[in-house]
Design a protein around this nucleic acid. Sequence first.
DNA 1: TATTTTCAGGCGTAT
DNA 2: ACGCCTGAAAATAAT
Length: 672
Amino acid sequence: MEESAGEGPIDKSRVLNVKPLRTLTPVFSSPPNSSSFSHGSPPFVCVPPAGPFPPGVSPFFPFSGIPNQSVPSSDHTPISSAVPINSFRSPEPLRRAANGNAGSSRRVNRNNRGVEEDGYGEDQTQSLQSKNQKRKKGSRDKFGSPDVDTDVMVENIFQSYNLVQFEAAQLYDGNKDSVGYVLLVYNLLRRQIVQLEDTKEATSGQTRRPDLKTANILMTKGFRTNAKKRVGAVPGVEIGDIFFFRMELCTIGLHAPSMAGIDYMSVKISQDEEPIAVSIVSSGGYEDDVDGDDGLIYTGQGKEMDQKLERGNLALEKSLHRGNDIRVIRGIRDVGNPTGKVYMYDGLYRIQESWVEKGKSGSHVFRYKLGRLPGQLEAYKTWKKIQLWKDGTTTRFGVILPDLTSGCETLPVSLVNDVDNEKGPAYFTYSPNLKYSKPAPKDPFVGCACNGACLPGNENCDCIQKNGGYLPHIVNAVIVSQKSVIYECGPSCQCPPTCRNRVSQGGLRVRLEVFKTKDKGWGLRSWDPIRAGAFICVYAGEAVDDSKAQELAGENEDDHIFDGTRTYQPVEFMPGDSNNAPNLPFPFIINARNAGNVARFINHSCSPNLFWQPVLRGNSKEFDLHIAFYAIRHIPPMTELTCSYGMVPPEKADRGKRRCLCGSPKCRGFFY
DNA sequence: TATTTTCAGGCGTAT
DNA sequence: ACGCCTGAAAATAAT
């Protein structure tokens, strides 16, 4: 439309309004009346004011000037341009990770820190540095414990992933990769902090809000993306994406305030500057209402007294008149964690009307009616539908069996076909366990002799010690990161079945369905949102010995086989580095053709959302090895669960090669 | 299930 | 530089 970037006359008077250095330059995405919501190539250009500038973009005011006369003050006019008002903290430069210094103290790090390659002036960096130093010192005094540990963890993470501070292009304008990495690092670091705090005595300084602490570390280091506020879609974030912490929304630029529900920015139209809303979080803090299938009635902010038409409320009011797109994030209680919430990005809405009501406390509240723009993928609506399936209000269409496990799992697993007439997968026996004639262990892992629960830091618990003094999982059966093997309490351990180090024995924790895919046969997906790192299931079936393994591996028909002898390339956004690549003590293949569990339905993808993890259980008599599957990243409801099937040796490579239909942009085109 | 404790981003304004 | 506004997450207490 009128405002494709780089076209049209440039009103150079605006250039003078651009504040230098710490000021950001927002640019609007597609025109508000556009009906396409493609995320492919965001139709805008955004340039950090201090550069560096992307190819083809001159260091000049980046967005097109729309003639002033084309911006009447009538309702629902497209917004043409904006000047920034919100500054944000400039990133503390990150040292480029170097080998061998992972264990160095942060004091040394600080001395070594350079200011090269960061694109920021030295003065700024210096002042920022001292500011952070001051602040950190304060927190140290307060909690009585130095935060050396977390600094080392950050260093290690950045080193593992070869990460350096984002260039301005990704800092200000993200993409799928930058969003993926920020979320990976946020969640990995947060889990490591929780794990570390778990081992401390309650008396020593605890981080009570690891979610906030993690975000603070990353934001201070400039490891964030889409740091520029914008109207409309955020590059790299898709409708339906889910999050488990408000700070995640902040670090990827979806919704900046750490608490408030309304995010807004100031825009300049002609000579007037006014705030408009860019995103809202509707999560039950107020009495928001649904309005039909695609509508929402949102309550303004302010709880105690009569709400005032200021800040977010004013911005929403202005947005009603401007008619700009507003991102809506829906929050609901997390089924797996009743004290937490899950947030889902539900796409773009516009405000249709606003009014004042008497709230329950008798004071005035603002209410805003928002309508979802048409043509967007269904997101929150699906989620609500699933809730109805779960509480039995409605029946899922296409259900063949309400529970194909016949009750032998901790949760039912539906068998569903809503695409064709096939009545189910080929016959097999559902078995949640792994069966095999176990080889006698050469180096038995006998487990522990704990009376009560096995706790992190317990020097007498062999299982804990084998895991490096930590529990491999934090609460809710979330693994901290991939390890070559994790040691779990098993049949030889004295601890009770409730021990926290028996995650893979705990059964299913999310409501799964086996479903008929469009073109890949049967697959597996979840009705519940899944956290990054969450335990999904083990791979059940019959573990076969080496000779039988050779036989199986040579066959073409290798569906329903887990083959640990294959080569597994690193995949993107994995919570674990190459040092922690899975390591099996002997050739390990599980045949699930005749008997198996949900894991036999997990299809291959070149961009998988699950990884597998060897688990060795404490067992003095047998080699008690298992394969457990975990979520690589947050997985929205109804997203197919996939893993990498790995590569076969070259001599077998031409047998059983299949065309891959995973649909990932990074698809290799085939798999085995 | 209810209550208490804890805390970060960034707008807006003063300096 | 700093006050102020915004409520969620996690621990703890109560039922």
